[in-house]
């Protein structure tokens, strides 16, 4: 069970190999990779040249650990990993990786989605985008809040 907050890129294959090495109880691995995008129609028509992710050192790690703990309470997970990067990114750069391991696929799929939905609303990160005309802070999206709140009634 690992939470990493880091600037450098991650190697998805290596991370998954590490998690599954020498194990015979894993039947399912689900992963999600979030990537910096060039277009953000919510904020404007100009393409995004780069994006900077700022975070709240200390609180970010604690929130990620709490989110991970909550996922482990709700699903039978063999292992899980959250890597979230911070710093400056260009479109195409991977930003976040979530990997979940379980015996059967349902737990791995659901926990992976839950972790991402919760992370988007509970982890103190902020995105600032650079375009040709200037910089802008990305506004929070209601659809992200809705995605997180649908887990509230599920156990």
């Amino acid at each position: 069970m690992t939470v990493c907050l880091q600037e450098p890129p991650f190697d998805v294959g290596l991370e998954i190999s590490r998690m599954t090495a020498e194990r015979k109880d894993v039947g399912a691995v689900a992963s999600f990779i979030g990537i910096a995008r060039e277009d953000n129609p919510d904020e404007g028509a100009e393409p995004v040249i780069a994006m900077t992710l700022e975070h709240y050192p200390g609180m970010t790690e604690n929130q990620l650990l709490e989110i991970e703990l909550e996922a482990r309470k709700r699903w039978q997970l063999i292992d899980c990993l959250i890597i979230h990067r911070y710093g400056r990114f260009i479109p195409g750069d991977p930003i976040v990786l979530v990997v979940t391991l379980s015996s059967h696929r349902k737990a791995a799929f659901e926990a992976c989605e839950f972790l991402m939905d919760y992370l988007k609303t509970q982890a103190p990160f902020w995105k600032r985008e650079e375009t040709e005309t200037g910089e802008r802070w990305v506004a929070a999206r209601q659809t992200d809040n809705d995605a997180a709140s649908r887990w509230a009634t599920k156990t």
Partner: peptide, 10 residues
């Protein structure tokens, strides 16, 4: 105590 906008990570 910290003050900030709604979060936008992930």
């Amino acid at each position: 105590v910290a003050f900030f906008p709604p979060v936008t990570g992930g």
